[in-house]
């Protein structure tokens, strides 16, 4: 005999099963969705790597050839020499401007941290301007500024511009570190007779070093990724990688020959650095856990 109680129990278990099945299905669909989006994002990059081994520009008609790769390393045509020079310029501008930005941003953050609330807020809000401003406005304004002061446009103008834009990012990544540290140690060093600069170098800088490093990396990536600001503040002969690539953009096939293996190389370098970094980080945390 079936009692109403049984029915209720039966209903409950079946809906419970459904519930878990549904959850599993939802998770399955969700995971596949993430992987599909990731696949679309990576498709162009994978094609770049594959077609590095094909002759000619773009992604049409795969025909195996190492010509583009040898071209990248021998730079026999004037076009690929231009590309290599542009790459060197990008790295030069990136390193110098992010070193400058790290110096100014870190010292600035220490100063801002020691300010009164009112003036600190003014500077913090002012720092948001280059972060939120559109590249093209910054670029146009700097171009007008350099032209009006008749400062010759060259590597140094691009470096000055990039430093201005990336410096606030360094400042913002150092500031949280300062908030975390114990300022009494600094005060104690002053009481024990250290000069302010010595105390800053020996006590504050070691504490904020991680923030400085991440600020530097961020500044460097912003600098090498920038196109618009470099385009407006450079001289015609001083090309960066971005501005060189843009001169190739008019071609109907997209990526030109030697640009493919170079792009693949850039991507693989970034990947290798990130993997190495993460392995090191994992090892560190494991060691910490072991010590505990």
């Amino acid at each position: 005999m079936v009692t109403p109680n049984d029915i209720v129990v039966k209903k409950k278990t079946s809906s419970g099963l459904d519930f878990y099945k549904k959850r599993k299905l939802a998770r399955y669909i969700g995971n596949s969705y993430v992987y599909i989006i990731l696949g679309i994002i990576y498709l162009p990059i994978i094609l770049i790597i594959i077609y590095s081994f094909s002759s000619g520009p773009g992604f049409s008609n795969f025909s195996f050839s190492m010509s583009n790769i040898t071209e990248l390393f021998t730079a026999s045509t004037s076009d690929s020499r231009r590309m290599i020079t542009a790459l060197e310029h990008t790295l030069f501008v990136g390193i110098i401007s992010s070193l400058l930005a790290t110096l100014l941003g870190t010292v600035g953050a220490i100063g801002i941290f020691g300010m009164r609330k009112k003036s600190r807020n003014i500077l913090l809000n002012a720092s948001n301007v280059p972060i939120f401003n559109a590249d093209i406005i910054i670029a146009l304004s700097l171009m007008l500024f350099f032209t009006a002061l008749s400062i010759p446009k060259n590597a140094q103008t691009v470096i000055l511009a990039h430093t201005a834009v990336t410096m606030p990012y360094v400042m913002l990544s150092v500031l949280p570190r300062l908030k975390q540290m114990n300022m009494s140690v600094y005060e104690a060093a002053l009481d024990l007779g250290a000069t302010p600069l010595f105390a800053i170098a020996k006590i504050i800088v070691p504490e904020v070093l991680p923030g400085m490093i991440s600020g530097f990396v961020l500044a460097f990536t912003l600098s090498i990724d920038d196109f618009v600001i470099a385009e407006y503040t450079r001289s015609n002969s001083y090309e960066t990688l971005s501005t060189y690539i843009y001169t190739q953009a008019a071609g109907k096939e997209g990526l030109s020959g030697a640009l493919k293996p170079l792009s693949a190389l850039i991507f693989l370098t970034v990947l290798a650095i990130l993997i190495a970094y993460n392995i090191r980080k994992n090892l560190k945390t494991k060691n910490l856990q072991l010590k505990k």
Binding site: L38, L47, I48, F59, T221, L241, E253, G254, L255, L259
Partner: peptide, 27 residues
């Protein structure tokens, strides 16, 4: 790891990615 995978392409110059798209559209 997936989050990092979403960030990595941002380290590849955006013009390279844009031109790669152009190559795809062309082919």
């Amino acid at each position: 790891i997936i989050v990092v995978l979403f960030i990595i392409p941002m380290w590849v110059n955006f013009l390279i990615r844009t031109l790669a798209l152009k190559s795809i559209f062309y082919s």
